[in-house]
């Protein structure tokens, strides 16, 4: 069905009233890499958001951290990081987890600026994250509040799902323990450094290293192209 969705989008006329960054984004998305592109040539953006809670409609994004992976290398030079100004955000429980104090958040940038920067950063790269659907939904919610009619349409890879898929070739949902596929558990299992967790950037960096590991594992399982990875 994905091909049909994509086709429909491409046929739809571009939103003439949309801001320039969104028009650039829409144009970029028209040129996706072919599905038989080898993984070594694909561009990924690994990202994570810190939010006031887990409700996709009510809660808000407090910070975004993102880093690019290209040629199977994590590019420390290509990173995106921002704190987002959110009113009343400090009162939430999540703030304690992330250690983001209201004072810090006041130093953040307006939501519109944050989402614009992020969208410019990702372009048509494959989005990667731990439970990436949630983070994409949160970004979409930000877009919506900025009055943009449209959502992120990048290809995406959920590192937790990918790990399950690669480790358990005949997945049995009954015996699956989700706790074993948390970012902490995965980093631990794959012996990856996990300093500075629980900031958006720290998690994005850890997830990027996890992605490298999983891509290497994928190669061994015969997953060699973008198409095979995102299916």
């Amino acid at each position: 069905m994905e091909w049909l969705k994509e086709l429909m989008h491409q046929l739809k006329p571009a939103d003439q009233d949309a801001p320039a960054f969104w028009q650039r984004y829409s144009a970029a998305l028209k040129e996706q890499l072919p599905k038989d592109t080898p993984l070594a040539e694909a561009e990924f953006v690994v990202f994570d958001t810190e939010t006031t809670g887990l409700d996709q409609r009510q809660d808000k994004v407090l910070s975004i951290g993102a880093i690019k992976v290209r040629g199977l290398q994590v590019l420390v030079s290509d990173t995106f990081e921002c704190l987002v100004q959110q009113e009343g955000a400090a009162a939430t429980k999540s703030a304690e987890v992330h250690g983001l104090l209201s004072k810090q958040l006041e130093q953040g940038i307006p939501e519109g600026e944050a989402v614009e920067g992020f969208v410019e950063f990702i372009g048509n790269a494959i989005l990667v994250g731990q439970h990436v659907a949630f983070d994409i939904a949160m970004v979409n919610q930000m877009l919506q509040r900025q009055g943009i009619r449209g959502k992120l349409r990048n290809r995406s890879v959920d590192t937790a799902h990918l790990a399950i898929r690669l480790e358990r070739r005949h997945a049995d949902s009954h015996t699956l323990k989700t706790a074993e596929y948390s970012l902490d558990a995965l980093c631990d299992r794959y012996n990856l450094p996990t300093d500075d967790r629980h900031t958006a950037s720290g998690d994005a960096f850890a997830t990027a290293l996890l992605l490298l590991k999983l891509l290497s594992l994928a190669k061994k399982r015969g997953v060699a192209t973008v198409g095979e990875l995102i299916k």
Partner: peptide
């Protein structure tokens, strides 16, 4: 310099 580092994973 750190900003220009790339990280590689080796199996």
């Amino acid at each position: 310099l750190a900003r220009q580092v790339r990280v590689l994973y080796l199996e």
